[in-house]
Design a protein around this nucleic acid. Structure first.
Length: 466
RNA sequence: GGCGCGGUAGCCAAGUGGUAAGGCUAAGGUCUGCAAAACCUUUAUUCGUCGGUUCGAUUCCGACCCGCGCCUCCA
């Protein structure tokens, strides 16, 4: 079965097929680097990562561009307050974003595109829109005239046809002809950074960067454009208006939107005090993989209520997966093949694939894996699992981990080295042989204090870091 | 008010016109020198409410109730 994805535009699940035979052109709305990204932002970014990984698993070559918005009102305000140059200010948060992404094992897109590095191209695009009659000027700023774009509202399924607000004043005190119109280019204001361009001095509005950079790197029609649901209106609606007006072609074939992460049943906000950055969560001692697992385990079109209980539950679930992997890798099985169980493994792999093909149903994919693990454990306990079943089990785990990527523990600082652990374990084995359980338990407790858990199996002692 | 998402066991959550996946938690048990890991058993006659269609609905239709989000800052 082919990969099927829900398309916000058509409100239907549609088969994915890229325009350029095997290459998927993807544009995702990235961070605005005015502050640390919070885990709600990372829910969406984790979703992008899953899209990437699953497309690759399905044989597509990725051509993925993500923007970094490094010029915008809040950035300018904060940079001014700290008396810093724009790029000096944004560099801190861009780095923080990339570091956090790495902790969450989010793959780097093929290209990261900074808004400030494409100002002249944006100016050109705005000029082109002006030449075609889609814009107007007001107080040195340039606006897009929504009245000139009849399809406005198609993505968000809003009907604006009856709505004709008169001239009004927006938050920036710029004059607009129509409430729906949005700014393409902002005239310079006192003390604020601006760029000299053929369309005059100023800085770009928010929406134009995505249209310009997407078209620049991916062509006029892109396969997938993704973001959070809050971007559907007005951001993506405005991107469509600009891009289609510019090229005369449909802009995007699949619009994908991730639902919100909630905290205490509400959208995260600083005023409610339910605002967590990744740093906040890790500072409480949770592993980054647990965050990744939690964010990935709830299908992206469903709101996800973040709780620390949920994180704990994610950690335990990961433990179970890792324990199983350790068993597959470390246990000695009787020689031979259990054909029936090979079939069972293939069935689980198929179930896993079908779940992800079905609009990235990660919950169902996980269920397939856990069900398999339970049955494999039973087969191992009863001796029905044979040495030649190991490879298939490993393949399944690898396929799982190529998407979820939680099996490898994150390095923890300050742990004792492996050799030291092994040495202590040998001492303990000796003590146990002599039935000196007091000594063997003492060693086990000593290791436990340092976060090392021992497991005695019929094939010897296995250990892991907690 | 318009648009969108959702209401399934203590918590998270999948799913189907034919009688409820999976994870976590809890209790009991098997295994173990004791643990750990693993396994077994138990936990929703029921899927927001009320109607309708149907031999049969959690799943389709209608109405209603509740939660969340967007409606020119926003993942």
């Amino acid at each position: 079965m082919a990969l099927r994805l829900y398309n916000t535009l058509t409100q239907q699940v549609e088969e994915f097929a890229p325009l350029r035979n095997n290459t998927a052109g993807i544009y995702t709305c990235g961070p605005t680097v005015y502050d640390y990204a919070h885990i709600g932002n990372f829910r969406t970014f984790t979703f992008y990562d899953l899209v990437r990984r699953w497309l690759r698993a399905r044989g597509y070559v990725l051509d993925h561009v993500m923007n970094i918005t490094d010029v915008e009102d809040k950035i300018i305000r904060n940079a001014l307050a700290q008396k810093k140059k724009l790029d000096e200010y944004t560099a801190v948060y861009e780095k923080a974003f990339l570091d956090d992404s790495q902790l969450l094992r989010l793959e780097r897109p093929e290209r990261l595109a900074r808004a400030t590095e494409h100002i002249q191209e944006m100016a050109q695009a705005i000029q082109a829109l002006t030449d075609k009659g889609f814009t107007y000027c007001s107080d040195g700023s340039i606006y897009f005239r929504i009245a000139s774009f009849p399809d406005y509202g198609k993505l968000s399924h809003n009907d604006f046809s009856g709505m004709r607000a008169g001239a009004r004043v927006d938050v920036d005190n710029y004059e607009k002809d129509d409430a729906r119109d949005f700014v393409l280019w902002k005239a310079p204001k006192d003390g604020e950074p601006f760029w000299e361009t053929p369309i005059g001095p100023g800085r770009p509005g928010w929406h134009i960067e995505c249209s310009v950079m997407a078209i620049r790197y991916l062509g006029e029609i892109i396969d997938i454009h993704a973001g959070g649901v809050d971007l559907i209106f007005p951001h993506h609606e405005n991107e469509i208006a600009q891009s289609v007006s510019l090229t005369g072609k449909p802009f995007v074939r699949h619009w994908l939107h991730a639902e919100f992460l909630l905290v205490d049943g509400q959208k995260m906000s600083k005023s409610l005090g339910n605002f967590y950055t990744l740093r906040d969560v890790l500072a409480r001692g949770y592993a980054p993989e647990a965050v990744r697992y939690l964010l990935a385990s709830v299908p992206y079109r469903k709101q996800l209520n973040f709780t620390f209980d949920g994180l704990k539950s994610a950690e335990t679930a990961i433990e179970r997966l890792r324990n199983f992997k350790a068993r597959v890798d470390g246990e000695k099985f009787q020689p031979g093949t259990n054909e029936k169980f090979l079939e069972r493994t293939a069935q689980s792999a198929h179930q896993f694939n079908s779940a992800l093909d079905d609009d990235l149903n990660t919950a169902e994919a996980l269920a397939a894996v856990f069900e398999y693990i339970r049955e494999a454990n039973i087969a191992m306990d009863s001796g029905e699992f044979r040495s030649e079943n190991v490879d298939a089990a490993r393949d399944l785990l690898e396929r799982f981990d190529s998407i979820f990527d939680v099996l490898r523990p994150s390095a923890k600082r300050g742990s004792i080295p492996d050799e030291e652990i092994e040495a202590l374990i040998s001492k303990r084995v000796e003590a146990k042989k002599k039935r000196n359980f007091a000594e063997s338990d003492r060693i086990r407790d000593q290791l436990a204090e340092q976060g090392i858990i021992l497991e005695d199996t019929k094939d010897g002692t296995r250990w892991k870091r907690k």
